[in-house]
Nucleic acid binder design. Structure first.
Length: 758
DNA sequence: GTGCCTCGAGTTCA
DNA sequence: CTCGAGGCAC
């Protein structure tokens, strides 16, 4: 196929010379070639045509489409998101997300992990609840897909949703079977690729003998080896693999975690010999201690112990939080510590204006990595106390010139644990936190009760403006390929882009004379063209991404998607917000009145009559129409959105300059897509809004909510006329009454369970 | 009002 | 990854 593509391209007719018929045929041919190349690239490890050939086909397709827009095909390759080639490996979307684990750092957290699960499941303290405990291997996780017992794909974790295709490399690892006997038709095995200490040492000796740079630690060596573009290099590297989990399956492996691990072992995988079944927190902690004792003699790196609920049926009931399972936790070993000198404290300004202090350190090795910066969080952290005035680090303040103890929290983020006062220079002075923004000179204000000090300059502040732009192009927002933080910096500095809408007018402003872009460092004609194409691809985009991209305070990825699912369209959202504005302003004034009362009461030493004040301030106000109130109630009724988030959303979309900028952006977009409903075909409650009230007896609230959502229902906290079903348990009060008043369908827990089928 | 649980925002290095 | 803070259940 590579030869075919090359051969035909030699006979290609110049785009300008194409007749309409020829153009149509050519577009069809290109669509087929590109689709085939994509298939080859994404499902196999070796692309059939080179990146350069692929790019040139894509470019030709686009040029023809530009000349004959009416001929553009439904399945046009230029529309296909993610079809553009990344450097190196192809991307693989995991059939089931690869989750990370939440962490425990001491015995108490392990016990509260057990307690939390009992509470979620409604188990009493006496009920047996066994867990597995196994060492947490310090390598990199890998997902292996077997179909009919044959290894067909290996993918790294990536961001959890999408990983890299490393199939060819995985095939070179001895511990990974190419074929399985008696496996389910479909089986995704997950585990950890790692390198033993002995193999790491000898690899580094070979590296150095060859004049290569040695790896810092076994983990980096394993990661570097697995991500070799040439599988033959990977083959020469001594990688190993432990299996400990699974993804998509056509049939269950067992009924318990332990059983599943044994099954994986029987199928030919290496499983960790220190995996034990434990009968509760005490046995888990004992096994942790025993593993910690053996740590040095294991011959490979581990960074803790993982506990998992043994009963898979319970695992299924517990389900997942946004990025972690509820049924597992990693109990981490204490972090490695190192002393070094604090050379300076710099202030960074984030997109919300937050002033974040960063410690510049004399470089020091901590846990196999050289660290030269560490976060200092905020003003209070430097001063040695937290927001409530409680001392941290024994109340020691941190001064420039100090000797400080550094560790990598969670083995990643460098932090300062301690200060050596005996080595403090005589001339060291307490750090004076700036009260003006170091970037724009505006006043930096710290709100009452807030831990951070913020620059008040808004978009006048270049740091805030550019950080907002970076947020706009970030992965969960517009995610424009070829437009990362570095490029944004450059465009902003040169005055080419000062707000999101201007990204979309780059082509018309600078595209014709690509020359200008071409003359910049790192930009060729091809990359400029690719960038413009990547930008155009995002003129069609999901609603949730648009909302998130605006960078409204308190509206992150999850809240943005919640809003998108609730309002289903940009217009619906914006008009609801505009309608609710008078009510939001009324609410804000009410809160201010409450705050004033609180201060006054404190000063006079009497008890605050807060409820009275709040009620009075929020009472019927003719300036607030019933429509405004209804829109406000609806907004605050969205699960996960409270008054503070609602006020932030409404006010920020009401600010004139901000709104104008947003409108300019929206005008540049072609289509804002409504969120897809979850795949819940046949679900009787898909798309319905459900409210749970009163106490539930067969399941906990959290569980009820998670299950309803899995079936495509929206779970809300308050009853309104948009509510479809109210599930009322014993002790339900005002919400049940309101449901009756509004004529909303009302049912008890049993009826609900019958409705959703179990 | 209090105490989880989750989310948002800021962070490092390879 | 951590911290602070918002949302929500108790």
């Amino acid at each position: 196929m590579a030869e075919q593509a090359a051969g035909e391209s030699a006979r290609e007719i110049a785009v300008d010379a194409l007749s309409e018929n020829q153009a149509q045929a050519e577009l069809a041919r290109l669509a087929e070639l590109l689709a085939q190349a994509n298939r080859a690239y994404h499902t196999e490890d070796a692309p059939e045509i080179s990146d350069a050939e692929y790019d040139s086909l894509k470019r030709r397709n686009l040029e023809i489409e530009e000349r004959f827009p009416e001929l553009k095909r439904e399945d046009s390759p230029s529309e296909q998101v993610g079809s553009a080639l990344a450097e190196g490996f192809g991307k693989i979307r995991h059939a089931q997300r690869m989750m990370s684990l939440s962490n425990a750092f001491d015995d108490d957290e392990v016990r509260s992990f057990d307690r939390g699960i009992r509470r979620y499941l409604g188990l009493d303290d006496a009920a047996p609840l066994p867990f597995t405990a196994e060492p947490k291997i310090d390598g990199l996780s890998l997902s292996l897909r077997y179909e009919n017992g044959v290894l067909i794909q290996a993918a790294t974790r990536g961001d959890g949703a999408t990983g890299e295709n490393v199939t060819a490399n995985a095939r070179t690892i001895d511990d990974i079977p190419q074929q399985l006997d008696g496996a389910p038709e479909l089986l995704e095995v997950r585990g950890e690729v790692y390198m033993s200490h002995a193999d790491f040492e000898s690899l580094n000796q070979r590296q150095e003998a060859r004049g290569g740079k040695p790896f810092a630690n076994p983990r980096n060596a394993a990661a570097g080896s697995l991500r070799q573009l040439d599988p033959e290099i990977t083959r020469a590297r001594p990688l190993k693999f432990f299996a400990y989990a699974w993804g998509e399956l056509s049939a269950p492996l067992a009924e318990t975690q332990m059983g599943a691990i044994q099954r994986l072992a029987a199928l030919g995988f290496q499983t960790n010999p220190l995996t034990r079944l434990c009968d509760g927190p005490q046995e888990m902690l004992d096994h942790y201690a025993s593993i910690e004792e053996q740590r040095a003699t294991l011959g490979y790196d581990i960074d803790g112990v993982v506990y998992k609920v043994n009963d898979l049926a319970l695992q299924a009931r517990l389900g997942f939080r946004s990025t972690t399972p509820r049924w597992a936790i990693a109990h981490k070993f204490p972090a490695e510590l190192a002393w070094t000198r604090l050379e300076a404290i710099d202030i960074q300004v984030g997109r919300t204006g937050a002033l974040s202090p960063v410690a510049r350190l004399t470089p020091v090795t901590v846990g196999g990595v050289v660290v030269s910066n560490a976060t200092l969080h905020n003003e209070d952290y430097i001063a040695g106390r937290d927001a409530s005035g409680t001392p941290i680090r024994d109340g020691k303040d941190i001064r420039v010139g100090d000797w400080v103890q550094v560790y990598r929290a969670g083995d990643v983020i460098p932090k300062i644990a301690d200060v050596d006062l005996s080595k403090r220079p005589d001339d060291a002075v307490p750090y004076a936190f700036p009260e003006t923004c170091p970037e724009c000179g505006s006043e930096a204000i710290r709100e009452e009760g807030d831990a951070v000090r913020r620059c008040s300059g808004g978009l006048i502040c270049p740091a805030q403006a550019v950080e907002k732009l970076k947020h706009f192009v970030s992965r969960a927002a517009f995610d424009i390929e070829g437009l990362g933080a570095k490029q944004v910096d450059q465009f902003y500095r040169d005055g080419w882009v000062s707000e999101p809408a201007e990204i979309f007018t780059l082509r018309e402003r600078y595209g014709s004379g690509l020359q200008q872009l071409k003359n910049r460092e790192g930009w060729g004609e091809k990359s400029a063209k690719n960038l413009f194409d990547a930008i155009d691809e995002k003129r069609k985009i999901e609603l949730g991404r648009v909302i998130f991209s605006l960078g409204i305070r308190h509206v992150g990825e999850v809240v943005a998607n919640d809003l998108a699912r609730h309002y289903l369209g940009w217009q619906a959202l914006i008009s609801a917000v505009d309608t609710a504005r008078p009510a939001a302003e009324r609410y804000r004034r009410a809160e201010q009145a409450v705050e004033a009362e609180r201060m006054a009461a404190k000063a006079e030493g009497r008890r605050a009559r807060l409820k009275e004040i709040r009620d009075a301030a929020w009472a019927e106000d003719p300036a607030v129409s019933p429509e405004a109130r209804a829109a406000w109630d609806d907004l605050v009724g969205v699960d996960g959105i409270g008054q503070i988030v609602a006020v932030s959303l409404v006010t920020s979309l009401g600010q004139e300059a901000e709104r104008a900028s947003i409108d300019r952006l929206i005008a540049q977009l072609n289509e804002i897509e409504a969120p897809e409903r979850p795949a819940t075909e046949g679900s009787p409650v898909a798309g319905k809004t459900v409210v749970f009230t009163g106490s539930l007896e067969k399941m906990t609230r959290a569980e009820a909510k998670a299950r309803a959502e899995a079936l495509g229902a929206k779970v809300s906290g308050s009853v309104s006329k948009k509510t479809d079903i109210v599930v009322a348990g014993p002790g339900a009060g005002s919400k049940e009454a309101k449901a009756k008043e509004l004529g909303v369908e009302l049912m008890d827990e049993d009826a609900w369970l019958a409705l959703i089928g179990g």
